[in-house]
Design a protein around this nucleic acid. Sequence first.
DNA 1: TTCCCTCTGTGACTTCGGTCATAGGTAAGA
DNA 2: TCTTACCTATGACCGAAGTCACAGAGGGAA
Lengths: 226, 226
Amino acid sequence: MNENKAEIFRRIQLFAGLSTPELEAIASHAVEKRYRSGDVLFNEGEECDGLYVIAQGAVKIYKTSMAGREMTIALEQAPGTVAELPMFDGGAYPASVAAINDVRAILIPKREFSQVCRQYPDVALKVLAVVGKRLRHLVTTLESVTFGSVRQRLAKLLLDTSDQAGSNTFPLPMTHQELASRLGTVREVVSRNLSRFQVEGLIGISERQIAIANRTGLEREAATEL
Amino acid sequence: MNENKAEIFRRIQLFAGLSTPELEAIASHAVEKRYRSGDVLFNEGEECDGLYVIAQGAVKIYKTSMAGREMTIALEQAPGTVAELPMFDGGAYPASVAAINDVRAILIPKREFSQVCRQYPDVALKVLAVVGKRLRHLVTTLESVTFGSVRQRLAKLLLDTSDQAGSNTFPLPMTHQELASRLGTVREVVSRNLSRFQVEGLIGISERQIAIANRTGLEREAATEL
DNA sequence: TTCCCTCTGTGACTTCGGTCATAGGTAAGA
DNA sequence: TCTTACCTATGACCGAAGTCACAGAGGGAA
């Protein structure tokens, strides 16, 4: 069972460079957990209990407003980790995390993990690299929210998704609601902007499939005046 | 001269726990730099050359839009550090940093610093703590920009400034322009909202002094529906 | 099939924020 | 003192985006 966990750890960038016995030592203190789509791993404000390694599935990191609106800060897929950082500044979780499909996660208790970091400086440096990426991403998001429009962000997201799919035609990978959450807006606005893109001939929509009809046009939309 | 730098390092949280010889070893590779108000320490997108220790003065971390708008992401005062993180994920600086008054800074080259982190794991952990705080702050900012209004952010900023000053009356510490930049908006909107607060009796303004007239009222404004 | 539930599309309306233009204030320097 | 820059205040205007309301579509499950 522990070899099992250790096996998973091997796939996590954070632990690259650790030997098998080391991984097994960590694994022996770790707890496996399972979640189903929608289950919450932890809520914003809760005391931080440790590092979550996502072994299978994907999660979203998000914040919720009083009014009930939700904004997705980031997605994280297996193999990956969440909550690397609140472990170190001693505070609570700054955001909530929930499963977006069936998830298998491994919780490494705070104490263990900071032990590991102290013992293997390389792990700490890896954590820094991961956190660095996160911070970079957050800065970009903040920038596009302050300077940009929903239209721009939507255009960019469509292009990114298309690139990721490796094709101009791809299934819309989420509901408008989720899309809105990722863009920091509401359902209706997403719906409207998608329609607009369609009537402008930039994209085609049918059967939940998006087809990028005018790539350069869309790119122009995504770029203008960020 | 090096003892001088080492002396400064002693005041930096990052280096708490290092001995004097260790500090001096680091100092021997560090370069002192001076800037005057408005001078740019480095620009977004530039290759990361090292960690800046702010020995004296204060700097702002900011991003600029195509259209010329500027948004301040964070302020950092002596004794403090900037650019801790891009050192670790190998990328460029994600934002620009400029002096907001006369600044004395010490640049520790990338190579040296990652050396130190590897050698003294505690330093790496401290860096993580600092970066963690930054990330936390960013998440909060992003939240208030997505969910909140300029009015709310302004109210909050006034309250914070007042708390910091320890008095209900305090000089407005910056121009409306700078305020706007910190709130992610433009000068006129700040101006308008300040006026509004005044006519609503929440604050008083005279001679660049702000007086919080109705604290609970302002707090209500800051809080509503974040 | 029928019922329910979730997702989607759209119109009407409101408000906030951003832009532009303009005018008065203040402070430093020639 | 006058001049020059930079701040600040304010009105007019416009457009984006959020809210509300409702209607249709689709997809299970019984």
